[in-house]
Design a protein around this nucleic acid. Structure first.
Length: 272
DNA sequence: ATGTCTCCTACGAGGAGA
């Protein structure tokens, strides 16, 4: 689905930014390459690569026309930023505030004058427990860093798998998720406090009242039943609000063989 | 509670994480 918010047809100058939780960059390489070729995003934030740095498929991605920077880790997590026309200029590869945190969940780079933060917020289940505590700490650090970015007066996009169901509209059966780490009150209120800083939830902005899901688990034909969640988000700094012209979810890719449990999500920004 | 998928260890099946 494609809706042009301002009834402007997209031009070559528009910048398409996507986020995609892959669930294994190597297991998913054919799907990733097929999707890149089909949709040709300018910038891509990847999460859950589940591979150490030396196993990042740099050559295959370069052959597809993309420069890349990445921050991987054996078995779990892992984030990357790809860009078509220039190499992303890395700004940071971890969130400030907890030096002993060794999980690869954040990467930040400048591309075409925009600061791109690529994040994979902890899942946090089971809740309560140490994993949920880690999610809350990570979220607190992220909120503090987001405030710093807003005060920097640079256009910023924070894209990724937030593992947050923001509202009841964002879950197929919200009553089943109330105790879950993706939907607990603390998590929803943390996300709201982020928005209260001045960020725009781009997908919800383009589709104010519609059911839009980005994740469908592998069980019980969740995708076929549209039993999904909206947990992959784009937050835009105020500089970019007027440039947001379109957004969507590439549901086609979720239907492919050997695909991720997340669908790619994208936004399009008009040239300044 | 269940269901499915990926990666890891270490050679085969099971655990962890999502």
């Amino acid at each position: 689905m494609i809706i042009s918010k301002h009834q402007i047809s997209s031009t070559k100058a528009d910048m398409k930014i996507a986020t995609y939780n892959l669930n294994g960059v190597n297991a998913r390489l054919p799907v990733l390459l097929r999707w890149l070729e089909m949709t040709i995003p300018d910038v891509v934030c990847l999460q859950e690569m589940k591979a150490p740095d030396e196993k990042f498929p740099e050559q295959a991605i370069a052959n597809a026309g993309y420069h890349a920077i990445w921050h991987g880790q054996k078995s779990w997590n892992g984030v990357a930023i790809l860009a078509r026309n220039e190499k992303p200029e890395e700004v940071r590869r971890e969130l400030p505030g907890e030096p002993e945190d060794d999980q690869s969940r954040y990467l930040e780079a400048k591309v075409n004058g925009i600061l791109i933060g690529c994040l994979y917020l902890p899942n946090g289940n089971p809740a309560p427990g140490p994993k949920f505590d880690y999610k809350l700490r990570w979220f607190t650090r992220f909120i503090a860093h987001a405030a710093d970015l807003l005060s920097s007066d640079t256009p910023v996009v924070l894209a990724g798998d937030y593992n947050v169901i923001p509202t009841e509209l964002d879950a197929y059966k919200p009553e089943r998720w109330v105790e879950d780490a993706l939907f607990r009150p603390e998590i929803r209120s943390a996300f709201q406090s982020l928005l209260a800083q001045g960020w725009t939830d781009a997908i919800r902005n383009v589709y104010p009242n519609e059911i839009i899901y980005t994740f469908f688990d592998y069980f019980r034909n969740a995708f076929g039943r549209n039993a999904g969640l909206r947990i992959d988000h784009f937050l835009l700094s105020p500089h970019l609000d007027s440039r947001l012209v379109a957004a969507g979810v590439d549901r086609t890719a979720r239907g492919w063989e050997k695909t991720s449990d997340h669908a790619p999500v994208w936004i399009e920004l008009a040239d300044e």
